[in-house]
């Protein structure tokens, strides 16, 4: 993401290579957790530039689906196609995954977290301070992550999304723990990613208040 993008001005958006020309497609997808089948026969296709709200009761497979899209869980049946990539490792390099655990190290400073992500995800290490300022944690950047509240920890995790550009965002209950301003920030980030031709899939219980397509897993229960 460019420096200008942080100031809320137009940016170049995703580069042509990182844009998902063919979108994201599920073909006859079935997912299982252990020996329990969560859902089956999911066939759908989403074009770039879309927010998909993933809904379903607890235990319906929202988290497992997000992990499967990211290439971390293998489907019981069917194919996931992300752009032209079907291989789990190729999909992993195209996506950001924000799980319900934030993936922070208590002993590590906030700034060290963002630097780590910038380098790990091949992002822009020059944007660390801007990214921290964007989520409202600039003043705490030298403190270890263990002092953060739940909402602040989630805000820090959000910097992963902006410090390195990836076309697909997979968000698991992204608003959990966030205050009103944090939810607005999240909505802004998602809106910007969608406008730039990215694809956002968010597992939600409450709608995010943005134009979205819906994917309801309860209808696919075996």
């Amino acid at each position: 993401m460019t420096r200008r993008a942080f100031k809320g001005q137009p940016s170049e958006g995703l580069t042509d290579e990182s844009r998902l020309v063919d979108g994201l497609a599920f073909e006859g997808l079935a997912l299982a957790r252990g020996s329990r089948l969560l859902f089956q026969d999911l066939t759908a296709c989403y074009q770039p530039g879309v927010l998909v709200e993933l809904t379903g009761p607890n235990g319906s497979g929202k988290t497992t689906l997000l992990r499967a899209i990211a290439g971390l869980a293998s489907p019981a049946a069917g194919v996931i196609r992300m752009g032209r990539a079907t291989d789990p490792e190729d999909r992993a390099s195209l996506a950001h995954l924000l799980g319900h655990r934030d993936g922070l190290k208590g002993a590590l400073a906030l700034r060290a977290h963002v630097r780590f992500w910038a380098e790990l995800f091949a992002g822009d290490a020059g944007q660390i301070d801007d990214a921290l300022a964007l989520v409202g944690l600039r003043g705490l950047s030298a403190l270890p992550a263990r002092v953060l509240s739940q909402g602040q920890a989630r805000r820090l995790a959000l910097t992963r999304l902006v410090i390195a550009q990836r076309p697909v965002w997979l968000l698991d209950e992204p608003a959990a723990g966030l205050d009103r301003a944090g939810k607005n920030l999240l909505a802004d980030l998602i809106d910007r990613q969608v406008r730039q031709g990215g694809l956002v899939i968010a597992a939600v219980h409450e709608p995010l208040g943005l134009p979205a397509q819906s994917l309801a897993l309860e209808s696919l229960k075996p």
Partner: peptide, 14 residues
């Protein structure tokens, strides 16, 4: 446990 293993799996390196 803290899910940072997922980050290593999504990293720009094998």
């Amino acid at each position: 446990e803290d899910a940072s293993l997922d980050q290593l799996l999504l990293a720009a390196a094998p």
